[in-house]
């Protein structure tokens, strides 16, 4: 069990989260546990949903951001759906991942995805041999041609919103979860 002194708690952590878009509801939690009882992945996490929320409210920032729980979510949204106090847990979880990412904790699978989007505009590679195969298959079915988005625009958005570092080829920051 983690023992912490009151002075070691990050009292501002709850507000760091709740001031963000869609996350004000964090402060409503009454620790009833409905989220954890309906959670699809509840047996796979090191900290159940209601504990994650409690830890945010208590200011256990490091424990939350280094937990495996924030990455183990199937996005089923049952927690958010059933919460009697309107806590939007699944969205708050995404925010917590954003904060963990800022501290350099990035699953390789996710950074690979944004790089694929950066290079193709799509989440699936659509260049070279892949493009030829896909186009041929679509032609055979009589489906319209794929029009690739302007990649300069896509990459401008990725950079302006703060993920520019991740799409650099030499990035070694991410760790495999």
């Amino acid at each position: 069990m983690i023992k912490k002194n009151a002075k070691d708690l990050d009292n501002n952590f709850r507000f760091e989260i709740s001031k963000k878009i869609g996350a004000k509801s964090l402060l409503n939690c009454i620790q009833c546990g409905v989220c954890s009882s309906g959670c699809t992945v509840t047996e796979y996490v090191d900290m159940q949903p209601h504990r994650v929320v409690a830890s945010c409210l208590l200011g256990l920032k490091d424990e939350v951001l280094s937990s495996q729980a924030i990455w183990t979510c199937s996005l089923c949204h049952r927690c958010t759906e059933r919460c009697p106090k309107g806590v939007d847990y699944s969205f708050i979880l995404a925010l917590l991942r954003n904060l963990a990412v800022k501290e350099g904790n990035i699953p390789k699978e996710y950074s690979d995805t944004i790089r694929t989007i950066s290079k193709n505009g799509f989440v699936i590679p659509y260049t070279g041999g892949m493009k030829i195969t896909i186009d041929r298959r679509r032609d055979k079915m009589g489906l319209p041609k794929i029009i690739t988005p302007n990649l300069d625009e896509i990459n401008f958005i990725i950079k302006e919103t703060g993920l520019g570092d991740l799409i650099k080829e030499d990035n070694k920051k991410e760790v495999k979860k």
């Binding site: 963000k20 878009i21 990455w71 996005l75 995404a94 925010l95 991942r97 954003n98 990412v101 990035i106 699978e109 996710y110 950074s111 995805t113 944004i114 989007i117 989440v123 958005i157 990725i158 919103t161 703060g162 993920l163 991740l166």
Partner: peptide
């Protein structure tokens, strides 16, 4: 999944 987890603004 990935994009929202990395950065909600993106």
């Amino acid at each position: 999944v990935a994009t929202q987890s990395l950065n909600i603004d993106t």
